[in-house]
Amino acid sequence: MTFKLIINGKTLKGETTTEAVDAATAEKVFKQYFNDNGIDGEWTYDDATKTFTITE
């Protein structure tokens, strides 16, 4: 399955996707992406659209 990440950061904005077997696996991938890029904020997940959103 394809999961999308929408980034609404102070310095970084955009979208990316990842292929994962489930939302929990995608969450781990995206959290690592947050850490690697110094993004910290509030994030949500919409199961209907398989979209994670992080807002700094």
Rank of each mutant, 00 (worst) to 15 (best):
M1Y: 15
M1L: 11
M1R: 07
M1H: 11
M1K: 08
M1A: 08
T2E: 07
T2H: 08
T2Y: 08
T2K: 11
T2R: 13
T2A: 05
F3H: 03
F3L: 01
F3S: 02
F3W: 04
F3G: 02
F3T: 02
F3D: 02
K4I: 13
K4S: 05
K4P: 02
K4E: 03
K4L: 08
K4V: 13
K4M: 06
K4N: 05
L5G: 02
L5I: 07
L5A: 10
L5Y: 02
L5Q: 01
L5S: 01
L5C: 15
L5H: 01
L5T: 03
I6K: 06
I6D: 01
I6M: 04
I6L: 05
I6Y: 04
I6R: 04
I6W: 02
I6F: 04
I7K: 00
I7S: 02
I7Y: 11
I7W: 10
I7D: 01
I7F: 13
N8T: 07
N8Y: 12
N8G: 03
N8A: 07
N8P: 02
G9L: 15
G9E: 02
G9C: 15
G9N: 05
G9R: 05
K10Y: 10
K10H: 12
K10V: 13
K10I: 14
K10W: 09
K10A: 12
T11D: 10
T11A: 08
L12E: 06
L12S: 08
L12C: 15
L12V: 11
L12R: 11
K13T: 11
K13L: 06
K13G: 06
K13R: 11
K13S: 11
K13N: 08
K13P: 06
G14L: 15
G14A: 13
G14Q: 13
G14K: 12
G14T: 15
G14F: 15
E15H: 09
E15Y: 14
E15S: 09
E15F: 13
E15V: 12
E15D: 05
E15L: 10
E15G: 07
E15A: 08
E15R: 06
E15Q: 10
T16F: 15
T16A: 12
T16Q: 11
T16W: 15
T16I: 15
T17F: 14
T17V: 07
T17W: 13
T17A: 08
T17S: 11
T17C: 12
T17E: 07
T17M: 07
T17D: 04
T17K: 06
T18K: 03
T18L: 14
T18E: 03
T18S: 03
T18D: 01
T18A: 07
T18Y: 13
T18Q: 04
E19Q: 13
E19R: 14
E19A: 07
E19Y: 14
E19V: 15
E19S: 10
E19F: 15
E19T: 14
A20V: 03
A20N: 02
V21H: 09
V21A: 12
V21P: 14
V21T: 10
D22C: 03
D22E: 02
D22A: 01
D22G: 01
D22M: 02
D22F: 02
D22R: 01
D22Q: 01
D22W: 01
D22P: 01
D22S: 05
A23W: 07
A23R: 11
A23I: 07
A23H: 07
A23C: 11
A23G: 03
A23P: 07
A23K: 13
A23E: 05
A23N: 03
A24H: 08
A24P: 07
A24K: 10
A24R: 09
A24Y: 09
A24S: 08
T25N: 06
T25W: 06
T25S: 11
T25K: 04
T25M: 10
T25R: 06
T25G: 07
T25I: 06
A26V: 02
A26R: 01
A26H: 00
A26K: 00
A26S: 01
E27A: 09
E27C: 14
E27K: 07
E27R: 08
E27Q: 08
E27G: 07
E27P: 00
E27N: 03
E27W: 14
K28W: 09
K28E: 09
K28V: 08
K28P: 01
K28Y: 08
K28N: 07
K28D: 06
K28S: 09
K28A: 12
K28M: 10
V29G: 02
V29H: 12
V29Y: 14
V29S: 04
V29C: 09
V29L: 11
F30D: 00
F30S: 00
F30R: 00
F30H: 00
F30K: 00
F30L: 04
F30T: 00
F30C: 03
K31Q: 07
K31G: 03
K31I: 11
K31C: 07
K31A: 05
Q32W: 04
Q32D: 07
Q32M: 13
Q32K: 12
Q32A: 13
Q32L: 09
Q32S: 12
Y33M: 13
Y33I: 11
Y33N: 03
Y33R: 07
Y33A: 05
F34W: 11
F34Q: 15
F34E: 08
F34L: 15
F34P: 01
N35E: 14
N35C: 12
N35Q: 14
N35G: 12
N35P: 06
N35Y: 13
N35F: 13
N35T: 12
N35H: 13
D36Y: 07
D36M: 11
D36K: 09
D36H: 08
D36P: 07
N37Q: 14
N37T: 13
N37W: 15
G38I: 12
G38H: 12
G38Y: 12
G38A: 11
G38N: 11
G38P: 11
G38K: 11
G38C: 12
G38W: 13
I39L: 12
I39K: 04
I39F: 14
I39A: 05
I39M: 10
I39G: 05
D40H: 13
D40Y: 14
D40N: 12
D40R: 13
D40G: 09
G41Y: 15
G41Q: 05
G41P: 04
G41V: 11
E42M: 12
E42H: 11
E42Y: 11
E42C: 10
E42Q: 10
E42V: 14
E42N: 08
W43F: 09
W43A: 02
W43E: 01
T44H: 10
T44D: 07
T44W: 08
Y45A: 00
Y45M: 00
Y45W: 02
Y45N: 00
Y45F: 05
Y45P: 00
D46R: 01
D46L: 02
D46A: 03
D46Q: 03
D46P: 00
D46C: 06
D46S: 05
D47T: 06
D47C: 04
D47R: 05
D47Y: 05
D47W: 05
D47N: 06
D47H: 09
D47Q: 08
D47G: 05
A48T: 11
A48N: 10
A48Y: 09
A48H: 08
A48C: 08
A48I: 10
A48P: 05
A48S: 11
T49Q: 04
T49E: 05
T49M: 04
T49N: 05
T49F: 04
T49P: 00
K50F: 08
K50Y: 07
K50L: 11
K50T: 03
K50M: 09
T51W: 01
T51E: 03
T51V: 05
T51S: 04
T51H: 01
T51R: 01
T51P: 00
T51N: 01
F52W: 05
F52I: 01
F52M: 01
F52R: 00
T53N: 03
T53D: 01
T53V: 06
T53K: 04
I54N: 01
I54T: 03
I54K: 02
I54V: 13
I54C: 06
T55I: 06
T55A: 05
T55S: 08
T55K: 04
T55L: 06
E56V: 15
E56R: 03
E56G: 05
E56C: 14
